[in-house]
Simulated assay, not measured.
Amino acid sequence: MVKRILLVTLYDEGNIGNRLQNYALQTKLLSYGTKVTTLDNCYTTDFSLSFKLKMFIKRVLAGVGYKKYKVDCERYLSGKSIRLSNINFDTRNLYKVIKMKTDDAFNSDWTSYDLAVVGSDQVWHKWNDDLNELPYYYLQFMPKEKRTAYAASFGFDEFPKNDVQQHVKGIMEMNKISCREKSGCRLVKKSTEKNAVRVLDPTLLLSVSDWKEVESQSCDISIIDKKYSYVFLYFLGKITDEYNNYIKSIMKKNNINIIVDFFDTSKIKLKERGPAEFIKLINNAEYVFTDSFHCTVFSVLFNKEFTVFRRQQAGFENMFGRIEDLLASKDALEHIYGGTAIEPTNDFDKLYDASIAYLEDILK
């Protein structure tokens, strides 16, 4: 039986969904009596000096009445707040974290670990120019027999031409593989003839009561304490005029007048702006509007009224499949704004059972 696990995942302190999936997979692995260490590859959302200077100028212009800069400033300030809140969340909730750059992972002694698990989230999507990024996320600093993946994701349907060889080598040398999306399983099979098990994002392995325990860590939110009805907005991309008009129409139809935008620091004052507050705001909303996968996950878990939009952001055009797969599995495709061509699969329970079976298999 596996006792010590090294969990290798995206460790972006500025990303709410990333921290939630990290916590969820750690929690599920701990439930089997293991000890889990998360490896932090020191990725940071710190911005360059030039970017900070531009934001300072925008903040000044916004302050003297140039409204077109207001949204950018609010998201920047909110991002800093989220990062600090995520760090506090990790301190309270992650079992153990080792900070280490990707290069150093290849020069360290990992013999005391029985298993390494990479996942979930888009761990196999190259995000920067680090030459060791993909080898790191394919666990090539570990013996081959200890390399496993849980709910790994690519975020694309075909390998980028410059990275094909790294991907094929990485997949071929993995001991056991599971992917979060159908497209990931197909890509693994197409490129290597290996079979990948399709599993659920780890946030879906925990129960509603598990997540309410996390929610209980939230700071006070006056709008909830006063029992006001509100809609919750969580958009990682742009809220277009078309999206905005639709949101307003739903609010009018349901007689709701209050909007809570997670990234708008000017309208909702929070001591913390992290995962617990994120969950609490979803759970208590009358309606949720989002373009985020993990916001969609929690809207489903809490059985909310919600609409999910395609993300309007360069480089994210092909990442909607994970949301379609999730909603198809729950027969909830009607929540997609603009509809979809895919058909419901109604296989969530089957996927849950496969996910637990896969975890138990790799922990033997």
Rank of each mutant, 00 (worst) to 15 (best):
M1C: 04
I5S: 00
D12I: 07
D12S: 10
Y23S: 01
T34W: 08
V36F: 05
N41P: 03
C42P: 08
K54R: 09
K54D: 03
L61N: 00
K67D: 01
K67L: 01
R83K: 15
I87S: 11
T91K: 15
Y95S: 14
K96D: 05
K99N: 03
D103W: 09
D104H: 11
D104M: 11
A105K: 06
A105M: 13
Q122G: 06
K126G: 01
W127I: 11
L131Y: 13
L134F: 06
P135S: 06
Y136T: 14
Y137G: 08
E145F: 00
T148D: 00
S153L: 08
S153Y: 06
P160R: 08
N162G: 02
Q166E: 04
H167W: 05
K169I: 15
K169R: 15
G170W: 04
G184T: 01
C185T: 07
C185V: 07
E193P: 08
E193Q: 15
N195C: 13
A196T: 13
V214R: 03
D220K: 15
I221D: 05
S222K: 15
I224T: 08
I224V: 15
L236W: 06
T240M: 03
E242L: 11
N245C: 08
I247E: 06
K248F: 06
K252N: 03
N254K: 07
R273L: 08
I279Q: 07
E286R: 11
S292N: 13
K304S: 14
N318P: 10
M319L: 12
D325T: 00
L327M: 05
A328G: 03
L333P: 02
I336L: 04
G338F: 03
G339F: 09
E343T: 14
A354T: 08
S355A: 12
I356K: 07
I356D: 08
K364M: 00
